[in-house]
Design a protein around this nucleic acid. Structure first.
Lengths: 286, 286
DNA sequence: CAATCTTTGTGCACGCGTTCACAAAGACAT
DNA sequence: ATGTCTTTGTGAACGCGTGCACAAAGATTG
């Protein structure tokens, strides 16, 4: 799943909990599928299964929207599709700009799930003059210079950042200055934005790292409960069973277990640019 | 089944909360950046700012890993980088396979953040025979036929699904059968997997929809608190202020407000395949 | 019209995650 | 060695989200 949601100190907009909002698109997708199969009604149980959630949770979620079900029968699919769409604001047209047309930007531009949900790609923007004029997903890529103009002309309020990490904040600043109030950030950086601007972050690398954590745990459990485990450090929560933090120790990593792949004390030295950290999509392949 | 702590389908591995795990990559990134700038130590306050979180939260998170800080000074950057890397399992090599080399798959293959975190792309798989042999990100794309072999040969335990929605579940099944135990799913589908297999989902469209929700709310708040709003339904939580669910009504959506952009009762009719719903990356552009 | 059956909507309790606030720990100065 | 100052580590309180379990509501049948 994706991370994100920056500002919004007190969510609870006007009743609908944030967690519920995050699930509405899930329900909507399941409902749309049912709609296409011309299924007239669904029970909370069926729909919950289709959406991969608990039926009680689903009912409670819907209860925040209002009572749109019929007891003894279930929910009217078409009606519910409309209600959720409206609640999410998908019954109106949302022009979006995508900045950074690398591999990822191109993937996003081609993503069918956008158009079918009311999102319209108003413009593709790239800083590389070489990219300008090229057609991606049927849309001509524009140079960054025209960013502000495009946003104004199309009344764009949602921006997608798919640039390298280094460019993300500057791009973000320009977007905000131009009037963008919602940003979907794919660059591996923490964006700082003024109040009133929503930022959601999707980080490809983070998800993998979380998987790796669980994977490692699974591997450790299956083999031996806690055999000769190198100092794992996860045993007790109170004291530190590993090694006392003897301050200024530097090259600690290389002495332990396997070969540090490149994440421990050595990510530097690979990338030329300092601070580039986890890089990014980069440019187009061809 | 009730054998102490063996199975642990839920989170709570052995102390580290799931929420904390999800933030560790964030800290790691910030720390890596500091490391590259040769900063020796950081306070929880500084690091928290860099990672975009609360300092108290950060300290508590670290406390689950052990006491790696020095009071009055802060945390040793290099040491902490190593500890977090080890905790996440990034000190070892994680071969991954990416299935579905469309725009998104290509973007993932090129994503620098993987390699620099110990993830190694063992193979790129695509079902399209046309793709086989093409080189993406320096790796030759293989046809799906070789999927099982690749997984076995490289001892792959993590798979990334970037296929169209329709193919996701079949691919998932094959991955699981071949021994994959962690899956990162980019296809807009709910995958069903046996116990013991972790699935994380990244949904590009859902994030945008969540943004749209907040964007809509902002727009509604700024203009008029609750002026002539079409039946919004979000006002009261108890009763349904919209329209009573008069059971078997079908084409309810089209009669109400503005022109449904395409999400309500009209997503069908566009895609040829039934049930395709929010489509997917599709194939390579060039 | 009454009885039965299905499914919703929700009150309630529980657990996780977040945040506050402070004592303990150590660095540093004198 | 003692005192001061900084920053960690964590106990405790609070709030949100989840899931249970059940009463209410309506369909349906006889």
């Amino acid at each position: 799943m994706a991370t994100g949601r920056t500002h919004r100190p007190a969510n609870r907009s006007r009743g609908i909990p944030e967690a519920t909002v995050a699930r509405l698109p899930l329900y909507l997708r399941a409902l749309t599928a049912l709609s296409e199969r011309s299924v007239p009604t669904v029970s909370s149980e069926e729909l919950a299964t289709a959406a991969g959630v608990n039926s009680a949770k689903l009912r409670k979620d819907f209860s925040y929207l209002g009572s749109y079900g019929t007891r003894g029968v279930g929910y009217d699919v078409e009606y519910l599709v409309y209600q959720i769409s409206r609640e999410l604001g998908l019954t109106q047209d949302w022009p979006v700009v995508i900045v950074g047309i690398g591999n990822l930007g191109a993937a996003l531009a081609n993503y069918g799930g956008f158009a079918s949900r009311g999102f319209r790609v108003a413009s593709l923007i790239d800083a590389d003059p070489e990219m300008a004029g090229k057609v991606v997903a049927g849309i001509e890529v524009q140079h960054s210079d025209g960013l502000e103009q495009v946003i104004e002309d199309n009344d764009v309020s949602i921006g997608v950042i798919a640039t390298p990490a280094a460019s993300a904040q500057p791009v973000c600043d320009r977007l905000v200055a131009a009037g963008i109030t919602s940003i979907l950030n794919f660059a591996p950086t923490v964006l700082s934005v003024p109040d009133g601007v929503d930022v959601r972050k999707v980080d490809l690398s983070i998800e993998l790292q979380i998987l790796a954590f669980h994977e490692q745990r699974k591997a450790g459990e299956l083999s031996d409960e806690d055999a000769e485990e190198l100092p794992q450090g996860a045993g007790e929560v109170t004291a530190s069973p590993v090694a006392p933090p003897a301050a200024s120790v530097t090259k600690r990593g290389s002495g332990s277990g396997k070969s540090p792949a490149g994440a421990s004390g050595g990510t530097s030295g690979r990338n030329g640019e300092p601070g580039s950290d986890g890089d990014v999509p980069a440019v187009m392949p061809a």
